[in-house]
């Protein structure tokens, strides 16, 4: 059932269903379970879903693929990445692609994806629960920067924010991080490149100079704006010492 890596040619059947995405972290950091539930997709007992997982690391050709077969409605699946005998992801991790293809009917107008769930527990504690997210219109170059916001980032002596950006598109883009204090003061990091089909993550206190000082008067709490040239998937995690205790996705503001 599992195909060997790398996957030279996409073997997916033609479908209008879009995949959704998540982070493929390094296995020494997190134990990741992908929870695949037809209940989360539909209430139609006739539904059947073909589930396929793929991993990307800097190229539009996936470095691994696991075909999990077709699940009837009424069945739950939980797949631990540790059990899939995967290759090593890059230093910043890679991109996990989750295909939930409803095989008994095409997607309805306006809702062409089915998001699933990631339950990740840190090897040293902490972790995150997060839905997989589609990236509709990913290939569109937009006239102005795409802006997504993350209220509640923290930079203090104890807590730092880990920013994670996923670019599940075939084009390199640029990203710019901008931290603001509750009073509206701003400090900005240098723009940096985000490779095609790549993940980037880093500590906010290092990525945006003077951000720790900026948030000193607000107990370390502020907000982050992420500007990118293409639609990407930004996440933020709160880190205490070596442990990422949570992760959440950004809020698009043009919705």
């Amino acid at each position: 059932m599992a195909s060997s890596a790398p996957v030279e040619e996409a073997p997916l059947p033609p479908t209008g269903w879009l995949p959704s995405y998540g982070w493929w972290p390094r296995p020494e950091d997190f134990s990741v379970t992908v929870v695949l539930s037809p209940y989360h997709a539909t209430a139609d007992p006739q539904a059947r879903f073909h589930f396929i997982l793929r991993g990307y690391a800097g190229s539009s050709t996936p470095v691994w693929e696991r075909d999990l077969g077709v699940a009837e409605w009424g069945r739950e699946m939980a797949v631990r990445l540790d059990d899939l005998d995967l290759p090593e992801p890059p230093e910043h991790g890679g991109i996990l692609e989750v295909h939930s293809i409803r095989v008994d009917q095409p997607p309805p107008k306006g809702s062409k994806f089915v998001g699933m769930w990631i339950d990740a527990q840190g090897r040293g504690g902490g972790g995150y629960l997060i839905p997989t997210i589609p990236i509709q219109g990913a290939g569109k170059l937009i006239a102005r920067d795409d802006l997504q916001v993350m209220p509640g980032v923290m930079i203090s002596t104890e807590i730092d924010t880990e920013v994670l950006l996923l670019n599940p598109t075939g084009q390199e883009t640029s990203a710019r991080l901008n931290v603001s204090s509750p009073e509206g003061l701003i400090t900005e990091g240098r723009p940096f490149a985000l490779g095609a089909w790549s993940a980037w993550h880093g500590r906010l206190s290092r990525a945006v100079p003077r951000s720790r000082r900026l948030l000193e008067d607000s107990a370390g709490v502020g907000s982050l704006s992420v500007y990118t040239g293409l639609k990407v998937l930004p996440y933020f995690a709160l880190r205490k010492g070596d442990h990422i205790s949570s992760m959440d996705h950004a809020a698009p503001i043009f919705a």
Binding site: Y39, A43, G125, S246
Partner: peptide
Amino acid sequence: GGITSTHEKAGTERSMASTKPRPYYWLLP
């Protein structure tokens, strides 16, 4: 031990008196 964070979800416009079934189930993975 640390901090966890997420956001409110019900930001979109929705009815206050919906009696229609949702086309899927909400669940905890």
